[in-house]
Amino acid sequence: MALDNTANGTIVVLNGPNLNLLGKRQPQIYGHDTLEDLEQQCAETASVHGFDMDFRQSNHEGVLIDAIHAVRESCSGLIINPGGFTHTSVALRDALVTVEAPVLEVHISNVHAREEFRHHSYISGIATGVICGLGTNGYLAAIEYLARVTRTA
């Protein structure tokens, strides 16, 4: 049974660089779903659990940091696929530390089965949890997790 869409607050999903090309860029690795498809799937899953969805993508580190600052005290949970910033951005990590809700790091591919430089994440050490290798289903698993641990209804 679906809950009232505003009963449990807002889940924020942030997507980093190149994820705007989802479905077009290396579909053998990242699949055929577009970012728009993923946004719809996430919104539907969140709605079933009584959450609103705030879904964003940027190729710019500062824009992602500003988004984190804007929601750090108000979101019910934050899901981030930092893309290439995973392996390079201490600044993104430092912004995520300030989020008062659970933070989940999601990667579409299994980063540990790829190039060695992808094995290190500045985000994993401060994240509540990490999901990788499940394709875009990893985002839906993250929403399901947040629904279970943050339910207020």
Score class of each variant (00 low, 15 high):
Gly16Asp: 08
His112Tyr: 14
Leu140Asn: 03
Gly50Ala: 10
His49Gln: 14
Ser109Glu: 09
Arg93Met: 12
Asn110Thr: 10
Ser76Met: 10
Thr6Ser: 15
Gly16Trp: 07
Asp4Ile: 07
Ala95Ile: 04
Pro27Ile: 04
His60Pro: 05
Arg93Val: 07
Thr86Asn: 10
Leu14Cys: 05
Leu21Gly: 01
Ala142Ser: 11
Gly83His: 06
Ala113Met: 08
Ala67Trp: 13
Glu144Lys: 01
His60Asp: 15
Val63Pro: 00
Ala43Val: 04
Ala153Tyr: 15
Leu92Met: 15
Thr128Asp: 13
Asp66Asn: 15
Ser47Asn: 14
Leu38Lys: 02
Glu39Thr: 05
Gly135Glu: 09
Pro17His: 06
Asn15His: 10
Leu134Phe: 15
Ala95Leu: 02
Asn8His: 12
Ala153Glu: 15
Glu116His: 09
Val111Tyr: 04
Leu22Gln: 02
Gly31Ser: 10
Asp54Ile: 03
Val71Lys: 00
Cys132Lys: 01
Leu64Met: 15
Glu100Asp: 11
Asp37Phe: 03
Ala70Ser: 15
Arg25Ala: 01
Ser121Asn: 07
Ala101Tyr: 08
Ala101Asn: 06
Leu3Cys: 15
Ile11Arg: 00
Ser121Tyr: 04
Glu105Leu: 01
Leu19Asn: 09
Phe85Thr: 05
Asn18Gly: 06
Val111Pro: 06
Pro17Met: 08
Val99Ser: 03
Tyr30Thr: 11
Ala91Leu: 07
Thr128Ala: 11
Met53Ala: 12
Asp4His: 14
Gly23Pro: 04
Leu140Pro: 02
Leu96Gln: 03
Gln41Trp: 14
Gly129Trp: 09
Val106Asn: 07
